[in-house]
Structures are given as C-alpha cells and as structure tokens.
Design a protein around this nucleic acid. Sequence first.
DNA 1: AATGAAAAACTACACTA
DNA 2: TAGTGTAGTTTTTCATT
Lengths: 162, 162
Amino acid sequence: MAKKPSARAPLDQFDRAILRILQTDNKTPQRSIAESVNLSTAAVQRRVAALEATGVISRNVAVVDPDAVAMSITAIVEVYLRDERSATVDAAKAAFRKTPEVQQCYYVTGGTSFVLIVVTRDMRSYESFTRKVFEENDSVNNYRTLVVIDRVKTDTQIPIQE
Amino acid sequence: MAKKPSARAPLDQFDRAILRILQTDNKTPQRSIAESVNLSTAAVQRRVAALEATGVISRNVAVVDPDAVAMSITAIVEVYLRDERSATVDAAKAAFRKTPEVQQCYYVTGGTSFVLIVVTRDMRSYESFTRKVFEENDSVNNYRTLVVIDRVKTDTQIPIQE
DNA sequence: AATGAAAAACTACACTA
DNA sequence: TAGTGTAGTTTTTCATT
C-alpha cells in the first residue's frame, strides 16, 4: 500500500494525535477521530491519506495471536557471524528477511551481529529451523537461543511525543 | 476492542487464508478477500467478526515508522534481575508494561530474565531511560544494551501454516 | 447467498488564515 | 498557497431474508 521513502512533511500536533489513535485501533471511524482532535472528517481523511502516502504509516495490519494459530514457541536468538564483511552481512540480512519463521530481525552493535525473533509451531520445528538457517549456513559462526516464557508486551507501538 | 474468551473454534483453511491477508493489509475490502478465498462476502464478514470476537485477531493497528516520528534509537536490552522470585518478576513485568519506551517485553529462559525492545528519540533520552528504569530499580541486577543499527525486518507477522 | 439499509470513506468546491 | 469545512457521491460494511 504505502511505500514512499521520504516526503518530509513535518508532523504537527494534529498528525501526532491521529497517529496515536490509529496505532491503537486503525478501524476507528474518521468521524470519531475528528471529534477527538477537533477537525472535520475531511481534514482527518486527507491527513491520514498523506501519512500513508509518505510512509509515516507504513502498513495497516491485523495483529494475530500466535497461540490461536498454534504457533506456541517464540524464541529470541542472538546470531554471531563468522565475519562482518558487508557481503556476508548483506547475504545474512537477505536470508533472514525471506525466512517466514523470522518474525523480526535487527542488526546490532556489541559483538552480536543479529538479534532475531523467531516463531514456530513447537520445539521440534524450532530445532529444524535452527538446523536449516544456522547450522547449514557457513557465515553463521554461533548462536544463542532465549526461549520466551511470557510475551509480556508485544505492542509494536511507538511513543509519539508532545 | 478485542477480548480473549478463548472460544476455540478450530481454524480451517478459509480462516487461515483470511488471516494471511489481514495480517498484510487489514483495510482489504471483504469483497476482494471473498474473491481470493472463494467465499461470499457475507461469509467473510462473519468469519472476520468471529476471529475478532475470539481474540484470534487481537488488534487492528496502523504501523508507524519510528524514523518518521523522530524516534531514531532502537535498542535491545537484556535484563538480569537480582532474583527470580515471582513477586520480583511480576513487579518487573508490570513496570515494563507501563513504560512507554518499552515497545516489546519478553520474559525468557537462559539466565537472562527479560529481553526488551526499547525505542527512544536519541542517545541522551536512552541514557535517561536506563537510569530511570534500570539503575534506580533495586530488583534489576544488571543489563546489557545492543543498539540497533538496522531494523532489517519488523513485520509482526505470524507464519500461518498449511 | 443475495438484497437492501446504514455507515463509513472519499471528492469537489468554496472559503479562510 | 496551503489547508479547512460543507455537502454531495461512492464504496464498504452489516443485517435480514
């Protein structure tokens, strides 16, 4: 839907207020957003469209409960690459990006190369995932798994200031 | 708003197909969902309502690009508690849950107690965050910060099988 | 599964800071 | 000129049969 790198329209108070609402529930009718922020529905409509067009809102999604679809293992994995040459790193990024079990992937400082959040059906499929993605991958030197006991907070919400 | 009365209606192929679509774009009209999965719009409508009512779809949200709202630091933090007594752990969970900079929080196995994903405006505000949340908190024994260089993948998408 | 009513999203245009 | 509000049009959602 929305994919536009940068059209820097600086966000004002109205935009921020709208974002705060949509981040919580993007099905909120424009009419009630308009009430909350004291604008007309048309103004809200235009602002939302602009926020989507410029990529401030990157996607509109339904959040699915992993348990409900029988994906009961969530793991956080620190991955250490064999080296940090850009070709090696880029190849790893591309691989992680297209692996469906990898829900999130961050490239980080501090010795660890990557932190992944991995979701699988059960422990057996987690094991076969590690074999496929780490052990059969030469550029992965080592990895450390932290199994999630409790998903305490998973809101992908950004604190929007002022 | 989504509840979670855990009414286990086992998901069939249609439900899964619908979820895959809504996880990508929850603004997709029911009419085009109906086309994709070969159901009537009414059937799609009923199924979506049921998925929301039973908490399989927990929320409907807009995803905001952190850079666009000038939140440029993302950090992954491993937190080690002083002890693992349930009172200590529960207090920490509650604290992290209500701290806005803590975007995600996982309670994990393997020595580390928690893994947090923290979003702040800049390094200075990250430092003041650590002071406030970790250093002035007796039950936090130690913590290790991994600063995110590249948010390679942040889809909060669950792989839905079959 | 199809129809129709209600609601929401979107568009056009005149107005204002 | 950029942005708003009013009002009218289209699309989507939802209830009824």
